[in-house]
Design a protein around this nucleic acid. Sequence first.
DNA 1: GTATATACAATCACCCATGTATGTAACAGC
DNA 2: GCTGTTACATACATGGGTGATTGTATATAC
Lengths: 203, 203
Amino acid sequence: MRRTKEDAARTRRAIMAAALKTFSKQGIARTTLESIARAAGVTRGAVYWHFANKRALVQAIRDDVSLPLIDQIDFTLLKQKDMPPLERIERFLVGLIEAVERDSRTRVTFEVMSFKCEYVDDLARELREYGRKNDRLRETLTKVYKEAQAGLRPGVEPDLAALETVTFLAGLLRLWLMDRHATGVRGHARALIAAHVAGRRAA
Amino acid sequence: MRRTKEDAARTRRAIMAAALKTFSKQGIARTTLESIARAAGVTRGAVYWHFANKRALVQAIRDDVSLPLIDQIDFTLLKQKDMPPLERIERFLVGLIEAVERDSRTRVTFEVMSFKCEYVDDLARELREYGRKNDRLRETLTKVYKEAQAGLRPGVEPDLAALETVTFLAGLLRLWLMDRHATGVRGHARALIAAHVAGRRAA
DNA sequence: GTATATACAATCACCCATGTATGTAACAGC
DNA sequence: GCTGTTACATACATGGGTGATTGTATATAC
């Protein structure tokens, strides 16, 4: 029965995919490791082999989409020095929306993390981690807004503007994810982003 | 053992309070009706007497803070005709922040609904309900922004502005609730609200 | 003053999830 | 080609929650 390393990696991915799908349907708490295993075509033994418990599985799924995204964010905001700062911020926001539009794994993972996860006990640290990510994003945005200061509308302070953008993004993502039939935010995401950035740009 | 009607109402409230506290600590899914009953000083029999099941309890708790809040929102936005429209919007936003600042029951309920609840199966309808509330709020805000149209910054469309405000509010509340030690949004909520409204007001 | 409905408490039967321990077959190194 | 380890499957022990049923004492209605 023993498989090769590639086989093992494939079952690991299969378990993660099955878990994500089941989490999305039933929520994390109500999902049993047994049902995940069944959906992945393995037994609980395989799940316990690859992951210590459900929490480790959740974290793996989350890191799987979160870590690459963070890299992309840092690149867009900080490394693209040839692009004007405000445009970089707009690109960053659009990039995130495009990520959830394009990649269903990213989208479903965000859905699960936003609406199908109870942040208590061991999971509570995940929430604090999310808070720290927001703090870092805010600092990064502050730098970018300071770069753009000459082009900012009078009265717009980089520090507060960064906080506004973080707030805007949190709301945008949340409402985008909720709007499953594109009657609300989903159809106007680009317009909202453009308006948000335009509101900070000097006239 | 039979109590009077006031006694019964008091145990009902005690159960709801105990449930809210326990939900906040352990999340909804991991909270057993037994532990709720213990925290309220009754047995599961009492809980099942007052509520059909856990879902009904959740809904009762949610309605308990949500319904009065909606009344207050409608009043602030629509009935205060003596106040200029943009100021009414600002008041409305500040009012919500004040509500979660002032009333711990409201705050904890929002925390539970935001971070300690899995919206699946029967609870999924609660999420759709929340979506509909957002839609109604958006419509209401559109009316108010239309009222304010003469005082709006050129280029600001009432329809999009309403959507922006709903988005802003969603993000604001979420980040405010997450910011448990007031290092981020919690200390700047008023400034954020003022900036949001100012960004839409004609210079 | 009695009957009935109320407001719970106590008990029961059932199922289900978790973690762990053990079994086992195949691969990978030598 | 033997061996130890990997990658699982199977089996077991345990605990805990739910819903339903039954019991019961007291308001409350008449």
